[in-house]
Simulated scan of single mutants.
Amino acid sequence: MPLNRRMFLRATAVAGGTAAFSGALWHQAFASGPAQPGPSPYGPLRAADGNGLALPEGFTSRVVARSLRRVEGTRYTWHPAPDGGACFSDGDGWIYVSNSEVPLVGGVSAIRFDVSGRITSAYRTLNGTTLNCAGGSTPWNTWLSCEEHDLGLVWETDPRGQNSAVARPAMGRFKHEAAASDPERKVVYLTEDQSDGCFYRFRPQTWGDLSSGTLEVLVGSGTGPVQWARVPNPEVWLTPTREQVAEAMHFRGGEGCYYTHGVCYFTTKGDNRVWAYDAAAERLDIAYDDDLVAEGEAPLQGVDNVTATSGGDLFVAEDGDNMEINLITTDGIVTPFLRLNGHGDSEITGPAFSPDGSRLYFSSQRGKSGFIAGTDGYTFEVTGPFRR
């Protein structure tokens, strides 16, 4: 970006001021200014631990899986290129599911933990799919695994591995990235990883059944009020879904997507933004933009997968840069939460909290080697006093 435009945007942000954010309604102030750098509520990062993770005081880490190696305590071999993930309750324990972003044999794997956090099993829940990137959980406890190619599908999978995965073509065939369920409006939001991609929502005919429904695309002229328009041909097309509605908004590479407290947050890598769609007001705002950082250097670069605590703090993973997960707090502060050293040619993927909010899972897709096939992927767990 030319320096003069960057200086103009920063000056505009300063003039507008940064509003005082408050609890779950902090998104309402985005029109007055996106999140700005500030001190972390967890304190500064300490020196890296034995796993290469620089964490705040009181937090610890462990490696729970390595690509092409058996998951400890099981006979299951963990997949290459671990990507999007989520956690699900399972009796007294929980399950972490993870996509594999490789062609032809991508799919999804899962690790089951008992109440103490001990791994009890690992297994496959989806096979034979291509470039499974991100996805999202549903209120009925399934995992939506999204294929990232031009004719990609959303696959609905069972985290427990008891039911067969099912393709959901009614949700559109495009370069899917992530999905986020909105139980209040009974829709699923979807991002598209294209340089001119769109932001979609799927309205199932029956909530809880994704086999049929209507795919819609966001329509508007920028931040502020927006609307939705039906995509005419979401399943079988000669014109890509992103080009079927002339008034559709286009975004520079849709990435992560997460719904919480009435807002669907999604990231776009081409302009390094975190967007906030206020679902009740049908309004779009910017939660973070590296060009709107008023002072100093922008701490968050290469925005990718995103998740949130139950209290509304966002955790945004970086694709590259200095391999951090950054925190965007409910009072409008953006700051590093952790940094992974020694994985400079990788990306951080799949952040997800355990059901009780005490553990954060994520992966380094290409690990220390940076090999594009992801055969050196790492999956981590961080435990500590997260705000809830």
Rank of each mutant, 00 (worst) to 15 (best):
A13F: 08
A15N: 01
G17K: 00
A24K: 15
Q28V: 15
P34M: 03
Q36A: 01
R46D: 13
L55W: 07
S61F: 04
R62D: 08
V64F: 01
A65Y: 02
R66A: 00
S67R: 07
R69Y: 03
T77A: 12
P80T: 03
G84V: 08
A86K: 09
A86N: 12
I95E: 04
Y96C: 04
Y96V: 05
V102M: 06
V105G: 13
G107N: 06
F113C: 06
T120F: 02
R124P: 08
R124S: 14
T125L: 05
G135F: 12
G135M: 05
S137F: 05
S145C: 14
C146H: 02
V154D: 10
P159W: 05
P159D: 08
Q162V: 13
N163H: 15
S164M: 14
S164C: 13
S164T: 13
R168S: 08
M171H: 01
G172L: 04
G172E: 04
F174Y: 12
E177S: 03
A178D: 15
Y189K: 02
Q194C: 09
S195P: 14
R203W: 09
R203E: 13
Q205T: 15
G208I: 09
S212L: 11
V217T: 09
G220I: 03
T223V: 12
P225R: 09
R230Q: 14
N233S: 15
P234C: 07
V236Y: 03
W237I: 02
L238I: 15
T241A: 12
T241F: 07
E243M: 13
A248L: 04
M249P: 03
R252F: 11
E255M: 02
Y259W: 14
T260N: 13
H261I: 06
G262T: 08
T267F: 02
T268K: 04
G270A: 11
G270Q: 03
N272Q: 13
R273G: 01
W275Q: 10
R283W: 14
R283P: 04
D290L: 05
D291A: 10
G296K: 00
G302R: 08
D304N: 12
A308C: 06
E318H: 03
M323H: 13
T335C: 06
T335N: 02
P336L: 06
H343Q: 13
D345E: 14
G350V: 10
D356S: 08
S358E: 10
S358Q: 14
S363C: 10
S363N: 05
K368V: 10
I372Y: 14
D376M: 04
E381N: 05
F386K: 11
